[in-house]
């Protein structure tokens, strides 16, 4: 196994909930949304690490925490930087140092319709990071931008360089987003549902592009998606998140072969089989509980078809069932 480049330890991000005036006068205590609650994992060089979960489970927040776009409530994000030639804790870095690290840590945004600055030409938008970091400007910048545009399939680049975002299709816009993330030659990229806002016909092409770029540019991806099928297809390892916690973590293949957590099984049974086109038989349709405030016991218990008495009382620990395959469920805790 190669060395980890990222080590996330006990990471937490709590967002305070606005209280009404009456609540404040009554002295009710402040409530928090625990978007990310005690998450730990490692990411290895050149792998694709998938984070899977429903909308609202905290996966996008986790992605933004990792590259320092938002600051965590507590915990550490240990990153081995090649630029600074040392190991740093992203959670504790000052803004200035964090800005330098932007060259190594990048993000591909989910919605290419709002991710592009409508008042900037495509080429200038892609190349702006070069100017921000004082790497190149003018002709030199133009050349670098053209090169990266060719790489992401915006060809011929001269034709796209001076266009504005409103003149591009969704797929082209996503290529622009990818090009901008790549222009600084990063090492680690958080891809936040990079295909979920695109037409199905274009999704596959964007995924193929991301995979090709990983090989060409030696990238490491943290791939955030709500589709467990997609994650199992392209990721080396997968973390399944539910309401801010990782409930299962392991190699893709291991999770396909034997999903341990009832939630993972629920996600997998929801996938429509393309061969039979049969609608999946989903046993329950309820929504996850509110992430505001405290949840007693296992957070999945309210939806779990296999819950035990203890599930309602105590939170299960994360246990290693097989080598490198972790699950947070009382069924696997030896008592």
């Amino acid at each position: 196994m190669p060395e980890p480049i990222l080590h996330v330890q006990d990471l937490k991000k709590y967002f305070p909930v606005e209280r009404s005036l009456i609540d404040r006068l009554l002295g009710k205590s402040r409530l928090y949304v625990k978007a990310v609650d005690d998450v730990s994992f490692e990411v290895y060089e050149n792998e694709i690490f998938g984070i899977v979960g429903e909308s609202g489970c905290g996966k996008s927040t986790l992605g933004r925490l990792i590259i320092g776009l938002i600051r965590p409530t507590s915990g550490s994000i240990i990153y081995r930087s090649s630029l600074l030639k040392r190991t740093v804790d992203i959670a504790k870095l000052r803004e200035k140092e964090l800005r330098v690290l932007r060259r190594e840590l990048q993000i591909i945004f989910q919605d290419p319709y709002s991710a592009l600055n409508p008042k900037m030409k495509i080429g200038d938008f892609i190349g702006h990071p070069l100017e921000i970091h004082g790497i190149a400007k003018g002709e030199e910048k133009r050349e670098l931008v053209m090169k990266i545009m060719e790489k992401v399939g915006l060809v011929p680049p001269e034709e796209y360089y001076d266009r504005y975002p409103r003149e591009l299709s969704g797929g082209q816009r996503q290529r622009v987003v990818i090009a901008r993330a790549l222009i600084l030659n990063p090492r680690l990229i958080v891809a936040d549902e990079p295909t979920s806002n695109l037409d199905v016909s274009i999704q596959a092409r964007i995924i193929a592009l991301l995979l090709r770029l990983r090989d060409e540019m030696k990238l490491t991806y943290i791939f955030i998606t709500h589709s467990i099928a997609l994650a199992q297809n392209i990721c080396n390892r997968i973390a399944v998140m539910y309401l801010g916690k990782i409930v299962e973590l392991g190699d893709s293949q291991a999770i396909i072969d034997e999903p341990l957590h009832p939630y993972t099984r629920l996600l997998m049974s929801s996938v429509i089989d393309p061969d039979t086109c049969k609608l999946p038989r989903v046993r329950e349709v309820s929504e996850p509980p509110s992430p505001i405030g405290e949840i007693k016991g296992c957070r999945f218990a309210s939806r779990c078809p296999e819950k035990l008495d203890i599930c309602l009382k105590e939170e299960p620990p994360l246990v290693e069932v097989y080598l490198g395959h972790y699950v947070r469920c009382w069924h696997y805790v030896r008592r």
Binding site: L69, L98, R102, L116, P129, H133
Partner: peptide, 8 residues
């Protein structure tokens, strides 16, 4: 946010 991600 893209501006922030670029380190602006």
């Amino acid at each position: 946010e893209a501006a922030k991600a670029a380190g602006a």
